[in-house]
């Protein structure tokens, strides 16, 4: 069952990458990166259990924190003009 869960998390990570490449807006990409990060935390924990090395959980904790900091850090600059979204005229 661990292997099934690892496969499911893998598929979701691939979906997140696809969404990150497809866009269409910048925010979709940030959302995809955020989701990719949280799924990485799960993947690291699952892999640690599958290999019988629960020490991997420390890395998972650190990764959860880094992921949060990176998303909030990018959004800290959301006042800059790169982030402006231009609505196409319907």
């Amino acid at each position: 069952m661990l292997i099934a869960a690892i496969l499911a998390v893998f598929i979701v990570m691939v979906i997140a990458i696809v969404r990150g490449f497809m866009g269409p807006t910048l925010y979709d990409r940030i959302l995809a990166v955020n989701m990719f990060g949280t799924k990485t935390v799960l993947l690291i924990s699952l892999l640690g259990f599958m290999m019988g090395r629960p020490e991997f959980l420390d890395i998972a904790i650190v990764y959860a924190l880094i992921n949060f900091i990176s998303v909030v850090g990018v959004l800290r600059y959301s006042d800059s003009s790169v982030f402006k979204h231009h609505n196409k005229q319907k």
Binding site: Y27, V72, H85
Partner: peptide, 15 residues
Amino acid sequence: TASHALAHAALQNNL
């Protein structure tokens, strides 16, 4: 917290 920050930034920037 992260999703609130993301949604707020998106609405602030005209999405």
